[in-house]
Each structure stands twice: as structure tokens, then as C-alpha cells.
């Protein structure tokens, strides 16, 4: 007999005990461990997803901030460029103004220097002319300058036309102060009395003539009363000389060149 029924019952019981044992010590712990691991992995994945989302959010935030900073930087750059342009313009204007001021000052100084030079030249010329004239007269005509000038003045008074003479008369009459004769140099008494005499003769008035020396008077003698005056001076000659000198100095370079060109070229021209 292959089947022993006691053994069958015992084996069935053994099998059921084994089912319980394995359920208790194998399946349950293993399944629990698997479930726990699955939960843990799921939690970790969820955590990773959350972190990923957070990281994405942070990245977006970072990008946004970056863009903001870029924009701010660009704005600052533009502003500073504008400021620099304005500042540059201001500095340029200042520099131009300073330069204009300097040029004006310089031109002013030049003009004033030119004027003083001109005055000095006039003075020196006058002195030289007087010196030359005096020496020439003394050497050639054995006479002096003062006498000749007085004579010239007297001649001038004699040559007055009737209109001028009338105006002068009325001026002398209206004058409260005596007529004044100014001269560059101190007139000798002979010349003084000669002038006084001529005034009385020509103008036919009794007046007292007062003599003054005026070194700044342009080389000559003048008679003045109540705003009218009659004068003789070399001022006109000097003015003419000055004009010639000025013309010569102010000749443009081209004209000057032409002026010194050879004669045949002038003839051809």
C-alpha cells in the first residue's frame, strides 16, 4: 500500500503549519519591507519632484533678477552716457567761452598796445620833426623854429576869411575869460607881443591874451576863446605822415609784393 493515511494526515498538518510559519516569518516581513521601500522611493521621488520644481522656480527667479540687473545696467549706462555728453558739451562751451574771453582780452591788449605804440610813435616823430626842423632852420636860415612857427601862426591869422573872422570876433566878445594862446613850447616875449598885436589888429578887439604852454599840444600854436579856436600846427603834417606810415604797414602781403616787383613787370602790367 503506497498511501499511509496517518502519514497523509500528518503531512497535511505539517503543510498547514508550514503555511502559517512561512506566512509569519517570510511573506509578511518581505512584503512589508517591499511596501516600505516602495513608499520610501515614492516619497523620495515626490521630494525630488518638489526639489526640482523649487529649483526651477529658483532658476526662473534668478533669470528674472538677472534680466532686471541687465536692464538696470543698461539704463545706468545710457544715463551715464547722456550725462557724459551733457558734461562734455558744458565743458566745451566753457572752454569756448574762455577761449573767446581770452581772445577778446588779447585783442583788447593788442589794440591798446597798438594805440600806445602809435601815440608813442607820434610823440617821438613830433619830437624828431621839431628837432630836425629846429636844427635845419638854425643851420640853413639862421633862424629858430619858434619864430618861424609864430610867423606861420600870424600869417594864418591874417589869412582868415571874413566869416571865420566874424565867428571868432563874436566868440571873443562873448567870452568871459581872456583868450588863451597855447603853444607846445614857451613863447619868448617878442613872439608873445607880436601875437597879441596881431590878434588886436586882425580881430579889432581889445582883449587880454593869456599864454600857456601845453606840451601835449600837437606841435603848434592855437588861439582859443569860448569854444572857438584858430590854430597852426604840424599836426596835419604828422597826420599825413602817420597815414602814409599806416598805409605802408597795412598793405596786404600781395599788394606789398606787387609794390616791390621788378620795373619791367610793372611796365608789362
Amino acid at each position: 500500500m503506497l498511501i499511509d493515511w496517518f502519514t497523509v494526515a500528518a503531512q497535511a498538518l505539517n503543510f498547514l503549519i508550514l503555511v502559517w510559519l512561512l506566512k509569519r516569518f517570510l511573506y509578511k516581513p518581505i512584503l512589508n519591507a517591499l511596501d516600505a521601500r516602495e513608499k520610501r522611493i515614492a516619497a523620495e521621488l515626490a521630494d525630488a519632484d518638489a526639489k526640482k520644481a523649487e529649483a526651477r522656480q529658483e532658476r526662473d527667479e534668478f533669470q528674472r533678477k538677472n534680466e532686471e540687473i541687465d536692464q538696470q545696467r543698461a539704463a545706468l549706462l545710457t544715463k551715464s552716457e547722456e550725462d557724459a555728453t551733457v558734461e562734455r558739451q558744458r565743458l566745451l562751451n566753457e572752454a569756448r567761452k574762455e577761449s573767446d574771453d581770452l581772445r577778446t582780452k588779447w585783442q583788447e591788449a593788442l589794440r591798446s598796445e597798438h594805440q600806445s605804440l602809435s601815440e608813442e610813435l607820434t610823440r617821438r616823430t613830433r619830437e624828431e620833426v621839431f628837432a630836425i626842423a629846429r636844427k635845419t632852420l638854425a643851420d640853413l636860415a639862421t633862424t629858430n623854429l619858434e619864430e618861424q612857427m609864430t610867423d606861420a601862426f600870424i600869417r594864418r591869422l591874417h589869412k582868415l576869411d571874413s566869416a571865420e573872422r566874424g565867428e571868432l570876433e563874436s566868440a571873443f566878445k562873448a567870452a568871459s575869460t581872456p583868450a588863451i594862446v597855447r603853444s607846445t613850447f614857451d613863447l619868448p616875449s617878442a613872439q608873445r607881443s607880436a601875437i597879441e598885436g596881431v590878434v588886436k589888429d586882425v580881430l579889432a578887439i581889445e582883449t587880454h591874451v593869456q599864454f600857456e604852454t601845453a606840451p601835449d599840444l600837437v606841435s603848434g600854436i592855437e588861439l582859443s576863446a569860448n569854444g572857438h579856436k584858430v590854430a597852426w600846427s604840424i599836426g596835419n603834417y604828422l597826420a599825413s605822415l602817420q597815414k602814409h606810415v599806416d598805409d605802408l604797414l597795412n598793405v596786404p602781403p600781395k599788394a606789398a609784393t606787387k609794390a616791390i616787383a621788378p620795373p619791367e613787370q610793372q611796365a608789362n602790367g
Binding site: L21, L22, I30, R40, I41
Partner: peptide, 19 residues
């Protein structure tokens, strides 16, 4: 039965739930 039960008990005594 002994082998299966004891083996299971010994192995499952310190189960790890980690990786």
C-alpha cells in the same frame, strides 16, 4: 520545514527598507 522556517526567520530578522 525547519530549514525553511529558520532560514526565513534568520534572513527576515534584520530587513532593510532602504535601497
Amino acid at each position: 520545514m525547519l530549514v525553511l522556517a529558520v532560514g526565513s526567520t534568520v534572513i527576515t530578522r534584520h530587513l532593510s527598507t532602504g535601497l
